[in-house]
Amino acid sequence: MKTFRNIFAVLLILTALPVFAQTDKATTERLVNAQDFVFVATRALPLSSQDVFAVMSSMPNPNASGSIALTGAQYDLRIKKDSVIAFLPYYGRAYQASMNPDDSGIKFKSKDFKYVKKERKKGGWTITIEPNDVKDNQRLTLYVSENGYGTLNVLNNNRQSITFNGFISEPKAKK
């Protein structure tokens, strides 16, 4: 019985860990102000459409909520003072299709971009990024909470908008 209680306690602790904040307020503020962080996407929320629902319902264990868990892959948006690098999936309707299969998803590298950071009244930040040197006209709006959680909204002239939930973290040092 004591072993059962210990196993139960460990499982309870492990399931409660994701509830805690990703970073503390000081670390999040430092990362946002330094303009050097990574937004790691954990869920994708495409616009509601019959096409996306049809694809989702054909998958095993379909999720009726319309959100897609992004497990197993590292989808992110890397922001530095001199560059923005996006590697995110895309689910939704494209109004203008690309003939290159490598153009799927939201993938770009930009050295020429507009970066606007505004502090929100109830805490956190709204960061707007508009790359000038990428093929599609895109606008990325990142809402960051004080504890490091974020919501990224991607608007594109050639596709339906898509939203990602995730968190920000420090960039990993290269070896």
Rank of each mutant, 00 (worst) to 15 (best):
M1H: 05
K2P: 05
T3C: 02
T3N: 02
F4P: 03
V10S: 01
I13T: 13
L14Q: 12
L17P: 02
P18I: 14
V19K: 12
A21K: 05
T23S: 09
T27K: 11
T28K: 00
V32A: 06
N33R: 10
A34P: 08
F37Y: 15
V40E: 15
T42V: 01
L45N: 11
V52F: 04
F53M: 11
A54G: 05
V55I: 15
V55H: 11
S67C: 02
I68W: 08
T71C: 08
G72L: 10
A73W: 04
L77V: 06
L77K: 03
R78V: 12
K80Q: 09
V84D: 00
V84A: 01
A86K: 00
L88V: 07
Y90V: 01
Y91T: 06
Y91K: 01
G92Y: 02
R93W: 08
A94S: 15
Y95G: 09
Q96W: 08
Q96A: 12
S104C: 08
S104G: 05
I106D: 00
I106C: 09
K107L: 04
K107E: 01
F108K: 04
K109C: 02
K111R: 13
F113Y: 15
K114L: 15
V116K: 14
K117I: 10
E119A: 13
R120S: 10
K122T: 11
W125I: 04
T126V: 07
T126K: 09
T128W: 05
E130D: 06
E130M: 06
N132S: 10
D136S: 09
Q138V: 10
T141L: 05
V144H: 02
G148L: 02
G150N: 04
T151D: 13
N153D: 04
V154R: 01
N156I: 02
N157V: 03
R159W: 07
S161I: 01
S161W: 03
N165W: 03
N165T: 10
E170Q: 06
P171F: 07
K172L: 13
